[in-house]
Simulated scan of single mutants.
Amino acid sequence: MTSPPIAVIGMHRSGTSCLAGCLEDLGLNMGEVITAAPHNKKGNRENPRFWPVHDAVLARVGAAWDNPPLEPVVWTPDERAALKAVLADYNALPQPWGFKDPRATILLDGWFEVLPELQLIASIRHPLAVAGSLAARNGYEVARSLDVWSSYNRAILRWREHLAFAVIDYDTPDYEARVRRAADELGLDADRPMPFRETALNHQRAVGDIPEGAARLWSDLQEVAR
């Protein structure tokens, strides 16, 4: 019996690396991923071979990771073939296996064409904490960061209307319990030790009032988070 692959989705700087690392602790095989980086002490847990695939799809429609498309993107046959070429490496992985690249959040239509059985789990984070992290890493102004944050998280809610999957707030006090509950539902070993998460690595805190549009979206995300 095969296990459906698992995609860790969410906006950049929203705890997706932490969630992916925790799921690795609980038995999810992620393949060859980055395990250390300047802005992620334990790495972003991403396979960089997915980046050019996603970036090419985004570029074709005049978008980028920080300039998300306004509508769902239909992938071309060549783009789906490029994704399948990377996924061929995952055939040899012990199951269950998964991947994480925030870009996939805004490109899931193509993923589901290639992997109809794909399961999702999402990480969300307070918009102003994300804006602070993007300011530190990329020098972005708050308004720009919130626009990008909104696009990714609207995509999460759009998929959440059609599929049942866990949405986990990176800063929730019961984070570990929520991750373990979601992992159990995904068929992982929720009783394993989970040392990946270190609260000391969370360097951004939400400060100030959220602008109205982002505040409404954040409230909607909190409604589906568990």
Score class of each variant (00 low, 15 high):
Thr35Val: 09
Val148Ala: 05
Val57Ser: 04
Asp101Gln: 07
Glu141Gln: 14
Ile9Lys: 04
Ser145Cys: 09
His54Met: 14
Arg125Ala: 00
Asn202Gln: 11
Lys42Ala: 11
Asp171Thr: 01
Arg216Ala: 15
Arg137Met: 09
Arg144Glu: 11
Asp147Glu: 15
Ser151Asp: 12
Asp174Gly: 09
Thr35Lys: 14
Ala200Lys: 05
Gly110Glu: 01
Glu161Trp: 05
Pro48Gln: 11
Leu188Val: 06
Ala37Asn: 10
Asp209Met: 03
Gln95Arg: 11
Leu134Phe: 08
Leu134Asn: 10
Leu120Tyr: 08
Ser151Asn: 13
Leu221Glu: 04
Val8Lys: 05
Tyr140Lys: 04
Val53Pro: 00
Lys100His: 09
Pro173Tyr: 12
Ala136Glu: 13
Arg181Gln: 07
Tyr152His: 00
Glu117Ala: 13
Val114Trp: 00
Gly139Cys: 04
Lys42Ile: 09
Trp149Ile: 04
Leu163Met: 08
Ile6Gln: 06
Lys41Asn: 13
Val142Trp: 02
Glu141Asp: 15
Trp159Asp: 11
Val167Cys: 10
Gly187Asp: 15
Ala88Arg: 08
Gln204Asn: 10
Val8Ala: 07
Ala20Thr: 13
Tyr175Thr: 00
Thr35His: 09
Arg197Cys: 01
Met11Tyr: 02
Ala129Asn: 00
Gln95Lys: 14
Leu186Asn: 01
Arg178Ser: 06
Asp184Cys: 09
Leu157Ser: 02
Lys100Cys: 03
Ala131His: 00
Phe165Ser: 02
Tyr90Gly: 04
Val86Ile: 14
Asp171His: 07
Lys42Asp: 13
Val57Asp: 07
His54Leu: 12
Ala200His: 12
